[in-house]
């Protein structure tokens, strides 16, 4: 039995050694899925232009990315949340923001078009459970939220909910796209998405009489800042990749500005 395990160990070490020497230009990025469409496009363009480089994207969410990059298991993290010592064990991380990504509040069509921040807060917390209390039709509210690890949920909790939690009765969807679909299809649906485009099939809510304008996204006050993190100072290939990803003009097509 022992030789079996020893053999496996040897094979694994051998493979790791081979890997270490053969491909110095392999960069792995892990973290938030909200900028995944952009990163897929940018990494494809990058590897096309820089031959020996290989970029691997992994999901897992912002926190997983930060933990893994500080442990040295991936080269770069992409996160909506700033790192805390709890996740990084105090390992210093360099960072490079990719841009701002607006967080929009969306509702099922035909309910309301405008809310005050206070109303929004009480709706998301579950204190108000019927749309009639905020000037809409008589219809129970279905809050659609994201997992606890989601960066946009963190932003909503700090900027809108003053540190409180979204109601435990909320429906939890794993991704932006799923939240959008759920709000579009559920009567009484209310949710939030990271998006630089005006989503179709739902009402984009104005908050405190401010409206999101695609041509002028800078005026919208709620946004996340997806940021690349790596162990300082990082090697040349990591810095090259970070610089490339943070400077592509087509970021705007993916809602980063």
């Amino acid at each position: 039995m022992k030789p079996g395990i020893g053999l496996m160990w040897l094979v694994a070490r051998g493979a790791a050694l081979l890997l270490g020497s053969a491909i110095p230009a392999h960069v792995s990025i892990m973290g938030s899925t909200s900028v995944l469409p952009y990163l897929r496009a940018a990494s494809a363009a990058f590897t096309e232009a820089h031959f020996p480089y290989r970029l691997t994207l992994g999901g897992g969410g912002s926190i997983a990315g930060l933990v893994e990059v500080s442990r040295g298991r991936v080269d770069m993290a992409v996160s909506d949340i700033p790192p805390t010592a709890d996740w990084t064990h105090g390992v210093p991380l360099c960072h490079q923001p990719l841009g701002r990504q607006p967080i929009l509040f969306i509702a099922h069509p035909g309910l309301v078009t405008d809310l005050s921040r206070g109303q929004l807060k009480n709706l998301l917390r579950g204190r108000i459970d019927n749309w009639s209390a905020v000037g809409g039709p008589k219809m129970p509210v279905t809050v659609v939220s994201r997992p606890l690890a989601s960066g946009s949920l963190r932003v909503v909790e700090t900027q809108v909910l003053d540190g409180h939690r979204v109601t435990p009765k909320a429906i939890v969807m794993l991704s932006n796209g799923a939240v959008m679909a759920a709000v579009r299809e559920s009567p009484g649906g209310l949710g939030f998405v990271e998006s630089g485009r005006a989503p179709t099939g739902v009402t984009v809510l104005g908050i405190d009489h401010r409206r999101f304008d695609v041509s002028r996204p800078e005026g919208w006050p709620y946004y996340a800042v997806p940021t690349l993190y790596w162990r300082c100072p990082g090697n040349d290939s990591i810095r090259t990749v970070a610089h490339y990803l943070a400077s592509q003009p087509f970021r705007r097509e993916f809602g980063l500005y």
Binding site: L36, T47, E48, R54, T56, L57, G59
Partner: peptide, 11 residues
């Protein structure tokens, strides 16, 4: 991983 690369490799 959840992407593909222009340069295919088992790694």
């Amino acid at each position: 991983g959840i992407n593909v690369s222009a340069h295919w490799s088992v790694w």
